[in-house]
Design a protein around this nucleic acid. Structure first.
Lengths: 361, 361
DNA sequence: TGCCTTTCTGAAAGCGCTTTCAAAACGCCT
DNA sequence: AGGCGTTTTGAAAGCGCTTTCAGAAAGGCA
């Protein structure tokens, strides 16, 4: 007697005295099978502990009920929230979310896309719009719906659920300029493979130019999105002969790092220098001084991305979602710059004071 | 002419002039097919843009190459790191990770387990060991390997990759007692469905009893794992007539909240009250005062969980992993308690000072 | 060259489910 | 009882791949 290892739909059919087709219907469209049989079937399912085989089901129906999500990172608190919101939303429509992590690396992202394509996910969630066109070609070829988040780009507008990073950055600059700032530093992410970071940087430049200002190359530092990296960059910026009066951070972890470093360097924020963040994560309002930043409604974005994808899955026609509103949140990390001495180039005491202070840590 | 929507393995076989079986081999064990044909096949695959169908493959081979992970939350920075480490590790062995989120709710977890069982995941990652035995029965019945993280329980030791939460909590208490503390408060998570939180609480109780001390019921507050909740609880604890000299937090977000609230209430930490955390996330060393806490090596746990699961997947016999070491990290949020007035019950000035201070926020 | 061993290859039988399609059962009238 | 339009049901044909199994090709040696 060969012992079967798993119970299949056929087993259930036999046990309930109906055909496999009927069992299948009973599971997928219960209304279409008569009460009496339905009960017998359900009963048999229960009794045998039957669990449908998703692979077989997917093969036959050409639907996996699975959505792939590729995030740059899970480690910082930035992507978890929206992802969770996304998952909850598509989950209630019966979809499972598979998550992969690209570590901000196009190569890795490519691999993960490929994997998801093999897995025949019903849809795909990506972050940002900038990637090898070949990837989009494949997605379209395979007819896999996708949504691009964190951005409201022009190129593939129809797929973008996100906000206008550049505009938000401009808003921040406008505000600082209105306070009287003229000398800026920026701690940015790496912009080569990151269109969100690039947009923020370009927004800063645009706004600056509009005001007849500029960001000297040595005042722009690129760092990974980590507080320690932000610290480091801030230290560099503020140890220079002629430090900026305002430091724009391309991401919030950068700003936290800057604020911590300022504390350790005995630099008063916002007295000596203003610092801004970007995203308004929970720490922004708690840190001291509370951080002036841009609020990006990420939970809403996650939900909206889900809805956008679900609409495609339902076969509805793509309509470009409208960009999600961001809001400038003014807190205590920004203020008017303190008046400068006329001979700006001198100030060696600043320099020494600041590097000295570092030893305390 | 009926246009085929996807190219299949058979198409490739035809294009390369070999049998489907050979193509299959070429993909799965390239070494077993002769150079010349292999090249023809690879070439055809490339030319046709063939992407294997995972469902079909899974159905035929009875392997999905997918691992399910059910985490209590993705929103806080706690689970993301280890999950990413886990993913990277199993990813390099060719597995994809599907993530679901239970929100600390057994019902939701149950549903997700069920879904993963239907998806026929090859393995499962869970957090904690406490759940309906029925779930374990199902897993065993279906022969799905699993690993339980964040805990080193006795019940299913063989599956646990984690640390001894109770012992770590005891260590914290011992340290505080050695500083001279006798009056404790605790901000804990909800312990009913959370064995990690429960173990920490029990550890605290055990250690306290060992020193002939106890935790009065009104000094134990249960809160969700959020800074704001921690704030709230800390405020309550410290507004009482006879506040504790040390507040133990069951999780780090609680501790951050406590520290922020202390700042806003003008309570000096560690002068007036000591505060401890649990987990040593990145903020712990940056916040002021830097937090005394227990370091739980979560990245290592993620990797080890992956290895443990992969070993099972390879068919190796289960050996109980040894618990992961935690270490007490003493920073500046703890100190000896300040001497108390003899009449402990009185101190109405304390009370007023503290509630008054709140108005500043 | 012939024979035996080793390596490759192809035919065919599933894997467990969904989904036509047509037949059966039912309900309702006349 | 017979007829007709609706449900309900079952048989059978896949979905696209893996995996025996046995036969073909290649290699080694006398």
């Amino acid at each position: 007697m060969k012992r079967r290892t798993t119970t299949t739909l056929d087993d259930v059919a036999r046990a309930a005295g109906v055909s496999p087709a009927t069992v299948s219907r009973c599971i997928n469209q219960p209304a279409s099978v008569r009460e009496e049989k339905r009960e017998r079937i359900l009963n048999a399912i229960e009794r045998l502990g039957y669990v449908p085989n998703g692979s077989a089901r997917a093969l036959a129906s050409r639907k996996t009920r699975m959505i792939g999500a590729i995030m740059p990172s899970l480690d910082n608190m930035l992507f978890g929230g929206p992802l969770e919101a996304f998952q909850k939303e598509v989950g209630s429509a019966g979809y499972t979310v598979a998550v992969a992590c690209s570590e901000y690396d196009p190569q890795q992202e490519r691999i993960h896309v490929r994997n998801f394509l093999e897995s025949r996910v019903d849809g795909l969630l990506l972050v940002g719009a900038q990637r090898d066109p070949d990837i989009y070609r494949q997605l379209e070829r395979q007819g896999v719906p996708y949504v691009l988040t964190w951005i409201s780009s022009d190129a593939r507008k129809d797929h973008c659920v996100g906000f206008d990073n550049a505009a938000a950055a401009e808003q921040l600059v406008d505000y600082l300029v209105s306070l009287g700032h003229r000398h800026f530093g920026m701690i940015s992410g790496f912009i080569e493979h990151n269109d969100r970071a690039k947009a923020r940087y370009l927004g800063v430049r645009t706004a600056l130019e509009r005001h007849g200002l500029s960001l000297p190359p040595d005042q722009l530092l690129h760092r990974p999105f980590e507080p320690d990296a932000g610290r480091d960059a801030f230290h560099l910026l503020m140890s220079a002969a002629n430090p900026p009066t305002a430091v724009l951070c391309g991401s919030e972890p950068h700003a936290y790092g800057a604020l911590f470093e300022a504390r350790d360097m005995n630099i008063d924020v916002p007295g000596e220098v203003s610092v801004t963040g970007f995203d308004d994560m929970w720490l922004a309002s708690q840190i001291s001084p509370p951080l002036t930043t841009v609020r990006t409604p990420r939970g809403r974005m996650g939900r909206q991305a889900a809805q956008h994808l679900l609409a495609q899955l339902r076969g509805e026609r793509l309509v470009a979602p409208r960009p999600i509103e961001t809001t400038l949140v003014v807190r205590k990390s920004t203020a008017a710059p303190r008046p400068r001495p006329l001979l700006q180039r001198v100030a060696p005491d600043h320099f020494q004071a600041r590097t000295r202070a570092k030893s305390g840590s």
